[in-house]
Write a protein that binds this DNA or RNA. Sequence first.
DNA 1: CGATTTTGACCCGCGC
DNA 2: GCGCGGGTCAAAATCG
Length: 301
Amino acid sequence: MLLMDSGSRGDCSPVCLDLSVGLSPPSPGSGPETTADAERLDRPATGCWGPRTSSLADGKDEAKTLEARLTQVSEENRRLTEIIAYMYASQVAARRSPDGRKRSRDSLEPSNSGDANAAVESAALSDEGTCRRIKLTRVCTKIDPSDTTLTVKDGYQWRKYGQKVTRDNPSPRAYFRCAYAPSCPVKKKVQRSAEDSAMLVATYEGEHNHPSPTRAGELPSSTSINSSGPAITLDLTRNGAGAVRGLDAAAEVPGLKRLCQEIASPDFRTALVEQMARSLTKDPKFTDALAAAILQQLPEY
DNA sequence: CGATTTTGACCCGCGC
DNA sequence: GCGCGGGTCAAAATCG
């Protein structure tokens, strides 16, 4: 199961709504038409969910249309993410004391209880007022509860440089630096979840400036990603008529070929688009943040 | 013997 | 100013 955790953290949620999981990049020049998009996305979920009455040829056309829609939605999402994160950061900066005092290192990351907003906010404020963002990614992995090694197999080489017991969690937190490239700025913090000791929470800070040393860097099938904040949940485990099979299917299949075929299939894409649309419109945090961003853009009367 | 891990000390920002 | 807590340093211990 691959899901982007959301929602329950933070009060409002600007932030990296990275919905590009398993999607092809948006095609250039395929700019979205927001209003029309929303209308079309609001339509009842037919397609792969409902009975299929169309011919094969119609199905192909529909698949092409949906694929185009998918790239549009992806691009739209990316733009909104940038806009919202930037505007939220601007508001926070305006509210802060003007003395430009250095922020706490603590705020560079969400706490385990998870204030994702702080992460985005501090990232956007970094670098002397420029909007360069520090990428924060949280990855949760199911482990054997008896396993005490605090290791997450992500394909990179890490050097442990510290371990601490934090107040909000009885299990220790381990600190790692990327050991593959000396100049790589990426850090990783690993700690068991306070709620579920079988869940290992790894927080990555920064981005690797080198390729992954192995393809084993792909995430385990029972992994959830919380990309520095917000709040969209993609339930890819949903089954149904012609519907999405979860990425757990990879565990049942020898090799990734079949999984890749499934991801590339029109049915998967259709389901993904519809799931994204439902998630976006259902999530009040997203709509609030979007509304705030739009209001900011409007001239004051 | 070099690389890696462990662990106590230290640093620094924040709240009171 | 002081104490607290998270993050980092670095010497010692351990491993291959």
